[in-house]
């Protein structure tokens, strides 16, 4: 293993806003769910926020589709709880406008006409401003005693390709609103996202494309003065071959005679076809292990803390989510 698994650093543990991104297909929503559970472990209150309107959280926690409100979706070990919020952009815009204008029931009609979607189309940054604005409100909200409503907020964020654009609303807003209420609001968001209170975690698989996108995203985050948190290696599968056999096997050199001898001594008599099949499976496994090794080496270049989640052969259900959360806690997530 060339990636030193240093786990969750003190600096990351201090963050209150955890943004989870990753290339499509890397399992970022699952990881965001598991991270929320892990952070809630031991009695903390965590909010999991979904911004991309696919009701992925509801599927993950096997609940009804979420309304635009903060609903409890899970209890964590040790008395903690996870609430979830599915941010509806149109509702967020109306909510936002109602702070300044009394739209009355016209709001609903406008929505039906598609006027709100149109407004967010006119100004693509507006959507992200509203989403990040809502996130900021959740992170900074306090109860009567002045205590933060949530100990941590986890955002299932847009994929790596869009993450910096999403988080760095300053740029988008500079062109749009130079004055006015949304300016003041967005300044607050920018301060939060660029502070030590925020960590942006990157979920990746040990495959070429996701790793490349991760590296690019880290570069972009650094360039935009946003803080990359941890790399979360998802769906890691155990290497089975002895390390010294991998290179030869990946080259197609598997000693079939030796495998057959071993099988015989274990009491297995296989046909020539089945033995060939095993050899082919072994070659494919070795090629994959090599590719994973290269992926680890590349990831080591960015020098970020990393945690790992093992592949769950049976897929992810709510029970499995607790398993993943436990694995995160064991690696220092807190």
């Amino acid at each position: 293993m060339t990636t030193p698994v240093v786990g969750w650093t003190e600096q990351i543990a201090r963050a209150r806003l955890h943004v989870v991104t990753g290339k499509g297909g890397t399992g970022k929503s699952t990881v965001a769910g598991a991270l929320a559970l892990a952070l809630a472990t031991g009695g903390r209150r965590v909010l999991l926020v979904e911004v991309e309107g696919r009701q992925g959280i509801a599927q993950l926690f096997d609940t009804q589709p979420l309304p635009y409100s903060e609903e409890k979706v899970a209890s964590a070990p040790g008395g903690g709880e996870v609430r979830a919020l599915h941010v509806d952009v149109e509702a967020a815009l109306l909510e936002y406008l109602s702070m300044f204008y009394n739209l009355g029931f016209a709001g609903r009609t406008l929505r039906k006409m598609g006027a709100i979607e149109f407004a967010t189309t006119l100004a693509p940054g507006l959507r992200d401003v509203l989403l990040t604005g809502k996130v900021k409100e959740c992170v900074t909200r306090t109860d009567e005693s002045g205590r933060h409503t949530y100990d941590a907020v986890v955002v299932d964020a847009p994929p790596t390709g869009r993450i910096v654009k999403f988080l760095d609303v300053t740029k988008a807003m500079a062109d749009l609103a130079k004055v006015g209420p949304i300016k003041g609001q967005s300044d607050g968001v920018v301060r939060l996202l660029h502070s030590g209170d925020t960590a942006v975690h990157l979920v990746t698989l040990l495959e070429e494309m996701p790793v490349r996108e991760t590296m690019e995203a880290v570069g972009e985050l650094d360039g935009a003065d946003l803080r990359p948190g941890a790399i979360i290696l998802n769906r890691v599968r155990p290497p089975r071959l002895p390390a010294h056999s991998v290179t030869a096997a990946a080259d197609g050199r598997v000693d079939a005679g030796r495998v057959r001898e071993g099988l015989t001594s274990a009491g297995l008599a296989l046909s020539a076809d089945d033995l060939d099949g095993l050899v082919e499976e072994t070659v494919e496994h070795a090629v994959r292990v090599q590719a994973e090794q290269r992926a680890r080496e590349r990831l080591a270049e960015v020098d970020l803390p990393a945690v790992e989640l093992a592949e769950l052969v049976d897929g992810v259900d709510t029970g499995a989510l607790y398993e993943l959360a436990e694995a995160l806690v064991e690696q220092g997530v807190r």
């Binding site: 071959l241 598997v254 030796r258 095993l278 052969v313």
Partner: peptide
């Protein structure tokens, strides 16, 4: 015994 064969069997079970 036979670490290679054992590894092959395990990766087959994974598969």
């Amino acid at each position: 015994e036979a670490p290679l064969a054992a590894a092959v069997l395990r990766l087959h079970a994974d598969r």
